[in-house]
């Protein structure tokens, strides 16, 4: 707050004061008094006035400067009412009170949506657990009545399962609540589980696997990471070249600060300009828009979101017509060892 601006606000008071001094001086002309007093009166008034507005200016300047500075530094601006103290001048008090009330009502409003979202998420989770029952039963029926027809239905059921899994993790990824459990997990188990889960598509697409050096441990939630791996492996299987033997290579490297898991395929790759966008929600790219691919642009988006929550970084490299490499970087910080 500059003094100039502050003084502009005081222009009426100041003008009136100057008129008052002028009026007093005119009044005093009618009386025979010493010149000294004629000068003394306006000086004393002006000096006292200046002291008065300076004190006011300093108090206000301190409050508003503090307010603006704190606001700039704060990441969550709505916390301002918790930090800045209420001042002892009236406009400041009104402002501070108003802010507090606005904030309170805003937080209530936001909470309403938060609960709604939480509620919805709970419903989705419940629904997902319920829908899994008829799927499990259907699979049992198929197992007891194996033939060409049921085999075909089984394949479709598998697709349904994948979509359901995606919905579950989508619901989990969009809440603030911590929904995962981090503990020491064997990379080998995770990779094996994920491959077994996708064995039908991998065998059907005649993809050979080259898995090596994965006897390592990482700190993470195995359920989440298996889901992430599923998405990556399914993508690899989906975008293979038809003319040469397909291969997926999975291996891990131990670095000083982290363990990196590589999932590498020799598929059709991704166009150069599209690589940076693959983690965007709904981005399907040139590959995804091809017939039969039915890309929704959700899989990798979810992977990124879940990885962010787990503190894993996910990176993707690709050369068109040569293949794609996805890297999952698990931090090995000592703080996670406690869990």
């Amino acid at each position: 707050m500059k003094f100039k601006n502050f003084f502009k606000d005081k222009i009426i008071t100041t003008t009136l004061l100057l008129f008052a001094i002028l009026a007093i001086e005119i009044f005093l002309i009618a009386y025979p008094i010493a010149n000294f007093i004629r000068i003394y009166i306006p000086i004393i008034i002006i000096v006292l006035y200046i002291i008065g507005i300076t004190i006011e200016y300093l108090a206000k300047k301190q409050f508003y400067t503090n307010l603006i500075m704190t606001l700039e530094e704060l990441e969550d601006k709505y916390l301002i009412t918790e930090i800045v103290k209420s001042p002892n001048f009236i406009e400041g008090k009104i402002l501070s009170n108003s802010l507090q009330q606005i904030n309170k009502s805003m937080i209530e409003n936001v909470n309403k949506y938060k609960y709604m979202l939480e509620d919805y998420k709970e419903y989705i989770e419940l629904w997902i657990h319920e829908i899994k029952m008829p799927i499990a039963t259907s699979k049992m029926v198929i197992e007891n009545n194996k033939n060409e027809v049921t085999k075909s239905i089984d394949e479709e059921l598998e697709k349904i399962e994948n979509y359901i899994e995606q919905a579950l993790f989508y619901a989990r990824s969009s809440t603030v609540e911590k929904d995962y459990y981090i503990r020491k997990t064997s990379l080998q188990n995770i990779v094996n589980e994920s491959i077994k889960k996708n064995k039908n598509i991998l065998i059907a697409e005649k993809i050979s696997l080259n898995i090596h050096d994965i006897e390592k441990e990482v700190n993470t939630d195995s359920k989440w990471i298996v889901f992430i791996l599923n998405q990556i492996i399914q993508n690899s299987a989906k975008y293979m070249k038809s003319e040469e033997p397909s291969q997926i290579e999975i291996y891990a490297k131990q670095a000083k600060e982290n363990v990196i898991l590589y999932i590498k395929d020799n598929g059709i790759g991704i166009k150069k300009g599209e690589i940076t966008r693959v983690f965007e929600k709904g981005f399907t790219g040139t590959n995804g828009r091809e017939a039969n691919k039915k890309s929704t642009g959700i899989g990798l988006y979810l992977c990124k979101k879940l990885c962010d929550k787990l503190g894993i970084s996910i990176e993707l490299n690709s050369v068109q017509n040569e293949g794609t490499e996805v890297r999952l970087v698990f931090p090995k910080g000592s703080y996670v060892d406690i869990t």
Partner: peptide, 15 residues
Amino acid sequence: MDCLWETESFIDDNT
């Protein structure tokens, strides 16, 4: 292959 993969021998067609 299905049976082998189930027991974590992820062999390919040639193998």
